Simulated assay, not measured.
Amino acid sequence: MSDTSTIPVITVDGPSGSGKGTISQILATKLGYHLLDSGALYRLTALSVIKNNLDIDDVDAISKAALELDVVFEPQAEGEQKVLLNGEDVGVQLRLDETSAMASKVAAIPQVREALLIRQKQFRQAPGLVADGRDMGTVVFPDAEHKVFLTASPEIRAERRHKQLIEKGVNANIRHLLKSIIDRDERDRTRTVAPLVPAEGAFVVDSSDLSIDEVVQQILDFIGVSEA
Rank of each mutant, 00 (worst) to 15 (best):
L150A: 05
T11A: 00
Y33W: 11
T11E: 00
L94W: 09
P195E: 01
H146K: 14
D37F: 02
N52G: 08
I181M: 10
G17T: 04
A202Q: 05
G137L: 12
T4E: 03
E167M: 10
V140A: 07
E88G: 00
A152W: 11
S180H: 05
I56Q: 12
E167Q: 12
R160K: 09
Q120E: 11
A115H: 04
L84A: 02
A103V: 01
L96E: 12
K64Q: 11
P154T: 10
S208Y: 02
P8I: 00
L41C: 04
T22C: 05
K20H: 14
R43S: 13
D209E: 15
V148R: 05
Y42I: 06
S18E: 09
A40I: 06
L196P: 00
H34I: 04
S18D: 09
A101E: 14
V170F: 04
V205F: 02
E159A: 06
S226P: 03
I118A: 07
R161S: 04
V205Q: 07
E88N: 01
Q217T: 08
K20F: 13
R160T: 01
P75L: 05
E80K: 06
E200Q: 13
I109G: 05
R175C: 05
E78I: 07
G17D: 03
L177A: 09
L31T: 14
F141D: 08
E155K: 10
G224L: 02
F149C: 07
I26V: 14
R43Q: 13
E186Y: 09
G39D: 13
E88W: 01
D209S: 14
S2I: 12
E114L: 13
K168E: 04
Q122H: 03
V112R: 04
P195M: 03
A46I: 03
